[in-house]
Structures are given as structure tokens and as C-alpha cells.
Amino acid sequence: MEIETRNTLTLTKSQKIEVRNLNIWYGDAHAIKDASLKIRKNNVTALIGPSGCGKSTFLRALNRMNDFIDDCVTKGSVGIDGTDIYRTQYTNVNNLRKSVGMVFQKPNPFPKSIYENVAYGPQLHRMHESKAHLDEIVKNSLQKANLWDEVKNRLTSEAFSLSGGQQQRLCIARTLAVDPQVVLLDEPCSALDPISTNAIEQLILELKKSYTIVMVTYNMQQAKRISDTTAYFHLGEIVEVGATKKIFGNPNHRSTRAYVSGEFG
């Protein structure tokens, strides 16, 4: 079964995720219609499109977070490194979510200390050999999220005491702590001020060296600034995919052109 799946998904070397004919329903509502998309390794892929077009739904399909929604039905295939996470009955969905991490729109730290927030994932997966090792993981993750210098002296204080932008970077650190390969970000800056937004953008550019990044964004400028590939969604369909330069410079579709030029949204 697994071999068969591997064969059906043509995998090129730089390709991390391949979505094929993905269809998602919420009850009777068809939220994603026959979407196909290839996502390259160490790239930032931006998902753009008007509100309600299914960007979040699509993103959540990539680590099966939609499983938690009762009436959500998914058909089609999502191959990660050539393994269809839906068809092979991925033996361990929890491990999938460990390797495909997610950062949400609103910073959502746990009501615990900064340290505990980052340590939670590694503890969950028993990734640490000792307390010192766990400290090390926490430190590394916070460093990767460009937060270490700001919080190193207050690791035990409440995560809620951080500013919104710091909280979001904490959430990114928390995701990085379980050593994922793909990081999904759903409008990570929409609740943040311009300075925090800039900090997160710089961070994403750094992270793409080691991770594959898929992000939903409302902000055209942001997509333009940091993404390599852009996919434009409209009413549940992927209308156009291409290099970001092309999508913003010279898109093939009229509706893409209208959207990126700010005619509607």
C-alpha cells in the first residue's frame, strides 16, 4: 500500500509536500475543491486569497488538524516526503503533527511559564535525556525564534506577561522545539503591530534555511517580501500557483491580478 502510494506521487528532490486533488467538506459545504499544489523544501510558500476562500482549511489539511472538526471530510492525497498522510492511515498522527508544526493566527501560549511553554512539546515526545538536555532544547528553540535575549532572565515568568509579538515568537519557538520539518503559519502577524510583524518576517526568512514554510497571509506586501512561491485561492479553488514575482508581477488569471492589485479582498 505504501509502495503503491509512493509510486503515484512523483517526487522530485527538492519537493517536500505534494497535495493532489484535495477536496474538503464541512458537512455539505465544499470548502476545498480539487486543489493540487507542490511545496518545495526550504521555501516559503504563501497562500493568499479573499476571506473564506479556504486558506486555513487547506493549511490545516497539511497536518491533519481538520481531524478535530467533527463534520469535516477530506478526500484526496497529501504526500509528505512521498508518504500520503491520508491514505496510508499514517500510523501516528501525533508524530505527523510533530514533524509538521503549526503556528496560529492569534498567539496562543499555554497559561504557564515561558520555559514550560517551550518544554511542553519535547516532554510530550520524550525527546530529552536529562533536565540539562531539556534546558538546552528550550534555549536553542528560543534562540532560533530570536526570543532568547529578551527572555533569558525571566524564563519562569508567565507567558502571558510577554507582548503580543513576543508571544507569537514564543509560539514559534514552541513549535520549533519538537524539531519539525515543515512549519505551517496561519496569518501569524495579523494580531501584531508593524515592528513585531517585521521581527517575525525576518525570523521566517531565517527559518526557511532549515525548514519548509507554508504561510497564510492577508498582507500582500508581506507575501511579496518573504515568499518564494505564492498560491492564490478563490472560493475553495487554487486559481494560480507560481513564483511570487510572477504572481505579483504578471499573473495569468484576471482574478489573481485583481486580487493582488487590491481591487477586492
Binding site: 501560549p109 510530550l124 519538537v178
Partner: peptide, 27 residues
């Protein structure tokens, strides 16, 4: 307890039971 806490925990690869035991019930 906001849904976002469950999302955060599940998104890290916690099972439903782990999320409930480690995050939701304590909160």
C-alpha cells in the same frame, strides 16, 4: 478554556488525552 489552547497542544503532536490531561484540565 479557549479552543486555542487545545489547538496549540494538538498541533505539537499531543493526543486528545494528553491535551486534556496536561493542558485543559489543569487550566
Amino acid at each position: 478554556v479557549p479552543q486555542s489552547v487545545r489547538d496549540a497542544s494538538n498541533g505539537l503532536g499531543a493526543s486528545r488525552l494528553q491535551t486534556t490531561m496536561y493542558q485543559v484540565l489543569p487550566a
